[in-house]
Design a protein around this nucleic acid. Sequence first.
DNA 1: ATGGTGACCTGGAGGC
DNA 2: TGCCTCCAGGTCACCA
Length: 284
Amino acid sequence: MPELPEVEVVRAGLERHLIGKEISEVSVYHPRAIRKHLAGPKDFEGRLVGRKISDIRRRGKYLWFEFDDDEVLVGHLGMSGQFLLVPTDLEFEKHLRINFAFANWPTQLRFVDQRTFGGMSIDQFDSANDAPASISNIALDPFDPAFDIEELIERLRGRDSQIKRLLLDQNLVSGIGNIYADESLWRAKIHPERPASSLTKAKLKLLIESATAVMGEALAVGGTSFDDLYVNVNGESGYFERGLAVYGRRGEPCPRCRVAIRREAFMNRSSHFCPGCQPGPRTG
DNA sequence: ATGGTGACCTGGAGGC
DNA sequence: TGCCTCCAGGTCACCA
């Protein structure tokens, strides 16, 4: 469920507690959690012990831990991943996949992930791209200081694809998932299935600004959470669900025009939109 | 190159 | 109670 705001809340929480800490023990409990680390669990565990965390960073929905050289530890939460900081003597969680212990600190970092779509791997840092090598294809997110909205608009302009498909394409702009895609399209009054080529430059700009705004607001209140699958690093869930205008609100009146919100199948998941103020792809 | 589809997993909710 | 279907915030591989 985590999109950019949720991942950033986690990153900030980890940063607050883990900078300067030395990893003393690593245990992998489920091989799928490190499936991208081809050298396997023993290699994964062994290469992290003794490392001191110097920084924790994020691009889009990926986050990574930096040490004192070019090796980094990359993580992705998938649909259900959580990083929990818990006292060492606390019972293991049912879906604990990886456990990290630290020198002289009675707290463990636990990667818990029910659906196992998330995972971690050790990677080389690519300083030319300022990110781990394995995520070189991931575009900058709107909160990156180097993010260039004009350049993104140029890449979107004239594309025949449906605009929501492009918003979700992490190679064009990263961090936006299904919730914030639906919310930004609603704010910009754009139907999710409109081809990008039918949108003016100004409309595309409004859309990206809306995405940035809605994610910024979610970030300010600690992310979005619908249930306990997602909690932040201290175990608290976010409160932004109250701020959602269309996502998960099928049948409820649009906050802007009172027409009932529709939910439709889209790309093997769903789109929520207002048929009243987000005119369909053929009606313009 | 781009777009469409299903696969990868576990579990909760709701209908019968 | 149980069995069934549908649903879930993300990627990834593969096909046309």
